[in-house]
Design a protein around this nucleic acid. Structure first.
Length: 314
RNA sequence: CGCGGGGUAGAGCAGUCUGGUAGCUCGUCGGGCUCAUAACCCGGAGGCCGUGAGGUUCAAAUCCCACCCCCGCAA
């Protein structure tokens, strides 16, 4: 079975790796063009490209899929199936309709919930108890195609974006390896999504990262975890500098202090008053201009004291 | 040449503007107090202040020059 893989970031790279290790025939990988990223705008290749090249799988990085050039490439590759995982471009109909076994996608949620760009983060931020991977046929809609296979995984109190992302990526790889033979043999049973239950997981914007301490402690923790280790929730330190929160836990006790007040600093970190009177213990931070450090170290550097406030005031 | 922060003891920082051989919180080691302790007290070790047998100076962590490295933002 000739497989054409399309994907870009780590998540996709892990999926591709699963296919390769399962001995499946990946004839080529399509990924986003190298882009100037990071400090100094260095050209950084997408993870999928790095891995594919190491495996000597041909890599294509079309600027656009909407011209004849890629159509020609597609003819030459003649895939039986196209596997998409976080590719980052909309596929035109002619591509979706090309493979005889179809075009399938690994999505990071239990569809029809969390359709869209940031399903993993949103699920954690919303305090969902579980999430998962859904393998589905692609169609012209936004993650609306018929579902083929799915697997759930619980979201625990200590999970964050990194842990769930990593777990889901491996689940996705496993499901893809399972579903491909099913497509070939015709065992796969497409299940329609119930649009009435659909929700959307919009891309994470900077505004989504700002912490509002008038929210209750639990919601703040969900938000912090869903955005860690990237892009990280943020607030402003008493000195007005940006302060990103890497990790936090629920602190015992309640307080009368206004939301955002630093109620206590200790060798474990510092506590912040939340809207419901509870407090969160911040344990890891990333101060503006610095690297990640434990909140204990942050406190030791004398950068914060009890009684001061965190707020997003501009 | 995208914008910006920084490299001082194992960690996080101060000191740099207003040159005069280094300080704070913690860790660590030793001792003490205590029924006991991650608590408290006393004491010690640990730094060629990123690199350059650079420049200026009587004197440089501090001023000037060059270079290396790390990080945040934005994409």
């Amino acid at each position: 079975m000739r497989i054409l893989f399309m994907g870009t970031p780590d998540f996709a790279q892990i999926c591709l790796q699963a296919l390769v290790k399962a001995g499946l025939e990946v004839v080529a990988a399509v990924t986003q063009p190298d882009k100037p990223r990071g400090r100094g705008y260095q050209m950084i290749p997408p993870p999928v490209k790095v891995y594919a090249q190491a495996q000597e799988i041909p890599v294509y990085q079309p600027q656009t899929l909407r011209d004849g050039a890629f159509a020609e490439t597609l003819e030459q590759l003649a895939p039986d199936v196209i596997v998409v995982a976080a590719y980052g471009k909309i596929l035109p109909p002619y591509i979706i309709e090309y493979p005889r076994l179809g075009c399938i996608n690994a999505h990071g949620s239990l569809l029809p919930k969390y359709r869209g760009a940031a399903p993993i983060q949103r699920a954690i931020m919303d305090g969902e108890q579980e999430t998962g991977i859904t393998i589905m046929y692609m169609n012209q809609g936004l993650d609306t195609g018929d579902m083929l296979l799915w697997e759930k995984t619980p979201i625990g109190d200590t999970d964050d974006f990194a842990s769930i992302h990593d777990r889901l990526a491996h689940i996705a790889g496993g499901l893809l390896v399972r579903v491909l033979p099913m497509l070939e043999s015709g065992e796969a049973v497409p299940v329609k999504q119930d649009d009435a239950l659909a929700t959307y997981a919009a891309k994470i914007e900077k505004a989504d990262c700002v912490l509002d301490f008038s929210m209750n402690a639990q919601s703040l923790l969900w938000k912090i975890r869903g955005l860690s280790p990237y892009p990280l929730s943020m607030t402003r330190a008493p000195d007005g500098k940006l302060l990103k929160i890497v990790s936090a836990t629920l602190s015992e006790g309640v307080t009368q202090q206004p939301a955002g007040t630093i109620t206590e600093v200790s060798d474990r970190g510092f506590c912040v008053a939340c809207g419901d009177g509870k407090q969160i213990l911040v344990t890891g931070v990333l101060p503006e201009g610095k690297g990640r450090m434990s909140a204990a170290d942050f406190v030791r550097g004398r950068r914060i004291q009890a009684g001061e406030r965190l707020a997003w005031t501009i």
